[in-house]
């Protein structure tokens, strides 16, 4: 019996773009559950709807129809402000381009979300330093993003995403801008966070290396989740940009 808590539940989610006759069906009847502690990877060719799905799960976009439940809350009924508060308190984001604030140091970037949550300074420091230690970022606290390598910036971005102990971390093509060695170490790091802190991760990627770490692989094709198994024969189809 599965006793894990359900964090995300999607029922018959449809997302269409455009109006009138020109409608692009980005998602067509998606059914998906993300459970606490999952380390799931979404794969699929470009245009398959990965980013759209990630945006809907993250409350950045709204589904045209269907049910999107996050931690028991129906996203379709929430205001933009309420969605923003849920993102602030319960969802971590890691972007392909890191998207760190260039005017803040590595430490301040990681601290930013905690500050939005109005966590007291002593706790902020404790949390940020804990993750910096765990992620091998010690000594880089006072560096600005421009003074860090791509891998280091992505580590800071991960620290920013996990530092507030979110229920879910959404990672969009996080290995796309780093070399394979750095990608490997980033994935190992996230795997460790998943194991040690029970942090739930959902990746969207084209990188076959990510699949090796996945506990669950979700394959998207033409806006639908397929039952197709990823194998060495067909992996090229899902990793092509």
């Amino acid at each position: 019996m599965n006793t894990k808590k359900e964090i995300v539940s999607l029922r018959n989610v449809i997302k269409n773009y455009g109006h009138g006759k020109v409608i692009t069906k980005a998602l067509q009847g998606i059914e998906l559950n993300i459970l606490e502690g999952d380390f799931s990877v979404m794969m699929g060719p470009s245009g398959s709807g990965k980013s759209t799905l990630l945006n809907i799960i993250g409350g950045l976009d709204k589904a045209t129809s269907g049910e999107v439940n996050f931690n028991g809350k129906d996203f379709n009924t929430l205001s933009n402000k309420a969605l923003s508060i849920i993102r602030r308190n319960h969802i971590g984001f890691v972007f392909q381009n890191y998207n760190l604030l260039p005017v803040l140091t590595a430490y301040e970037n990681a601290e930013y979300v905690l500050m939005l949550q109005e966590i007291p300074i002593s706790q902020r420091k404790e949390k940020v330093m804990h993750f910096f230690q765990e992620m091998g970022l010690e000594g880089l606290e006072h560096r600005f993003p421009r003074e860090l390598s791509g891998g280091q910036q992505q580590r800071v971005a991960i620290a920013r995403a996990v530092v507030s102990d979110p229920l879910l971390v959404l990672a969009d093509e996080i290995t796309a801008n780093v070399d394979s060695e750095t990608a490997q170490s980033l994935l190992e790091l996230m795997e460790t966070l998943n194991k040690n802190n029970k942090t739930t991760f959902l990746f969207s990627t084209h990188d076959p290396a990510v699949i090796k770490f996945a506990k669950k692989v979700i394959v998207l094709k033409d806006g639908k989740i397929t039952n197709e198994q990823i194998s060495s024969e067909n992996i090229e189809k899902y990793t092509k940009r």
């Binding site: 923003s84 508060i85 993102r87 308190n89 984001f93 930013y112 939005l116």
Partner: peptide
């Protein structure tokens, strides 16, 4: 990206 991570408009 700041809005995405929960910064209020």
């Amino acid at each position: 990206s700041l809005l995405a991570i929960g910064t209020q408009p």
